[in-house]
Write a protein that binds this DNA or RNA. Structure first.
Lengths: 231, 231
DNA sequence: GCAAAAGTGTTGTAAGTACACCCATGG
DNA sequence: CCATGGGTGTACTTACAACACTTTTGC
């Protein structure tokens, strides 16, 4: 039974749109779809959907992501609410943007083949409908800030990765070259990776050591000391 | 004429709630109201209102603020969208929180007297309705981050202020003591204040020099060099 | 003349940045 | 044996942190 106060107030359509970042060992990518409903049918767009009565925004964003990719338990974060009156010519709609981080390689998701979804290099992405380009710009900037202060880069990498992959990822996110020795020193000084007795031999004759992120150790350090991740 | 696509989708009530920060030369404060509608009538709350069809969220937040305080052209920033299903027992409502910065002293606003609104020291604020406490926590953390990286502290101060007032403001925001000499050196090295030939004689026998924020100079520095404000 | 707040520099320490060579291996 | 990318340490520079005494003037 619902009480229904505020009966005289306007109601609106509330959408979520997801900026999905991926990394394919060389470039930072975003996942886009060809929109299959009017208006703007056939144009490139972020994936999105409408909030339902029985879910909160986080759940709606996760649902939208899972519907397209089949993936769940993905890192997602609310970005910003977009509310320009005529932002969607189809109807007055407010959209709350979310961004998600997934590892392109590890997850062979079916959805991307089935739907008309496609990965784009961030620099080569097409123009998007509505205010979606604006959302992407903000998402990139948020990702950059997060990557510098939280260990979220690992969400974009496979379980096991080389130092060079991690560095390339950071170079993609920050859009600048980093010094190899300084980067390794910095990462090692954080002391939150496990160096495995295993090498990736595909990457060089010599091979390159594989590492994994030690989440337990990281969580312990944060809880115990006032440890804070900083690149 | 409206097109009305998406006709089968659920609509929701969309509210804005404002965390209004002030500074009274000693303490960081927030402005709260005694709620005058059901549910939770009579309890302390952030000021809020519902989004109307003919305005975007920024406009709604500005309207809500002006309705209570009579103030306009106030620094406001969108914080986060809160969407827990039963967050408001009156009805399913999504709320987008905004925070605002105003100078308590310079603005003698009538609203605060008329409505049952009241300034509270941040530490002494009462428990608030719904998820408003959670909003305040996030707003404080956002304010802290902004204050360290953008010149928004001046929004909370009168046009003319002393170095000590600026330092006390930062100490309130960051909730820690700062070293007087280091603080002055840091601020002066930024080179964005104008030192006036005028002293505030109420604050000490000796008097204290007054300063103003040189917004033009700041904007120029940001545009020309890659200058970035950092405390 | 003294209480009360303003004003002012230096030195040590930690973090960041720049930089070049050897190693291991598959072909 | 050589081409390729992996792996490693040091010196310099810059930002941050700690710290104490003199000045002014109303009472």
């Amino acid at each position: 039974m619902e009480l229904n106060y505020y009966t005289s107030e306007d109601k609106v359509l509330l959408a979520v749109d997801c900026i999905i970042f991926g990394f394919d060992k060389h470039h930072l990518k975003i996942l886009l779809v060809k929109r299959n409903i009017e208006p703007e049918k056939g144009k490139w767009s972020l994936i999105g959907g409408f909030l339902k009565q029985d879910e909160n925004l986080d759940e709606a964003a996760a649902r939208v992501l899972e519907t397209l990719t089949g993936l769940h338990d993905i890192y997602m974060e609310q970005l910003y609410a977009y509310s320009k009156i005529d932002r969607d010519p189809g109807n007055r709609t407010i959209s709350v943007a979310y961004f998600a981080l997934i590892d392109v390689a590890s997850h062979q998701f079916e959805g991307v083949q089935l739907e008309s979804a496609q990965w784009f290099d961030l620099e080569e992405a097409p123009k998007l409908i509505f205010d979606h380009d604006q959302m992407v710009v903000k998402a990139v900037s948020r990702l950059r800030r997060r990557a510098l202060t939280m260990p979220i880069g690992f969400e974009l990498l496979p379980e096991k990765f080389t130092m060079r992959q991690l560095q390339t990822l950071y170079e993609s996110i920050l859009d600048k070259k980093l010094d190899k020795r300084n980067f390794v020193n910095k990462i090692n000084s954080l002391d939150i990776l496990i160096k495995l007795d295993e090498k990736d031999m595909t990457v060089a004759r010599k091979g390159a050591y594989l590492y994994t992120f030690d989440k337990e150790k990281y969580d312990r350090k944060v809880a115990e000391d006032g440890f804070s991740f900083k690149i």
